[in-house]
């Protein structure tokens, strides 16, 4: 297995390769406005770092958000086109699950990321025991920070650093790593997760959670007064 994972749902553009046992290369560049520029070079770089050829890729995993739309689509269209051109399957993973994968400790916690417009994307997780995969129990949703039902649970992710009054203090990690998505997907594809499978792979359909801003025009504006 050679799994390529990528995510552009947040400010960080990230790509990783996983050989079925472990992450063998990983890159991350943070620049919220340059996803379309940075992703392809990052993928080329992880292949180069690992000394592997693109034709060896067996699976593609992409973070499907939720996240700001334009950046999110860069990862999804890249994954879909790579999958079509290389003839390999494309799997989606909720990007918040990738952040949860990196959260240490047990019990209940939340992951919140920046949804812009003074809102956050968030989901609630539970981990039974150290080392066990986290299970998503609620979400993903998009809400105003004050409306997230924190209920004393620790919150990780950029959302918590942006809105410390409602969600803080923020715990690490702040951003999703492609390596975490790769590990999560590799486990799920191998079918070796603890039953029931805590995280399910999904289609590569983006989790927009919001409709496009558009309203049909009203009555014609008159030019004669």
């Amino acid at each position: 297995m050679l799994l390529l994972a990528l995510d552009t749902s947040g400010a960080t553009v990230t790509a990783a390769l996983h050989d079925g046992t472990s992450v063998i290369a990983e890159r991350a560049v943070t620049n919220a406005r340059r996803h379309a520029e940075l992703l392809a070079p990052a993928i080329a770089a992880v292949l180069d770092d690992a000394g592997r050829d693109r034709t060896e890729i067996t699976d593609i995993v992409v973070g499907v958000g939720p996240g700001p739309f334009t950046g999110l689509r860069v990862g999804v269209v890249t994954a879909r086109v790579l999958g079509a051109a290389l003839g390999v399957p494309v799997h989606g993973v909720c990007s918040l699950d990738g952040i949860a994968e990196d959260v240490s400790g047990t019990g209940d916690f939340l992951v919140a990321t920046d949804a812009r417009r003074r809102e956050v994307y968030w989901a609630a997780y539970h981990r039974d025991a150290d080392g066990a995969p986290p299970e998503r129990r609620d979400g993903p949703h998009v809400s105003r920070p004050a409306e997230v039902p924190v209920a004393g649970r620790p919150v990780t992710g950029r959302g918590a650093t942006l809105y410390p009054d409602d969600l803080g203090p923020a715990g690490e990690p702040f951003d999703v790593r492609a390596g975490a998505l790769a590990a999560l997907a590799a486990r799920s594809l191998a079918g070796s997760g603890t039953a029931p499978t805590p995280v399910t792979l999904c289609s590569s359909e983006p989790m927009y959670l919001r409709r496009p801003d558009a309203t049909p025009p009203g009555a014609r504006k008159r030019v004669l007064t």
Partner: peptide, 20 residues
């Protein structure tokens, strides 16, 4: 349109990567 262009450019780069 920036957002529309971005989809095509990202797709083209992915093809360039996959096809070399």
């Amino acid at each position: 349109l920036a957002g529309a262009l971005t989809v095509g450019v990202a797709a083209a780069k992915a093809l360039a990567l996959a096809l070399g």
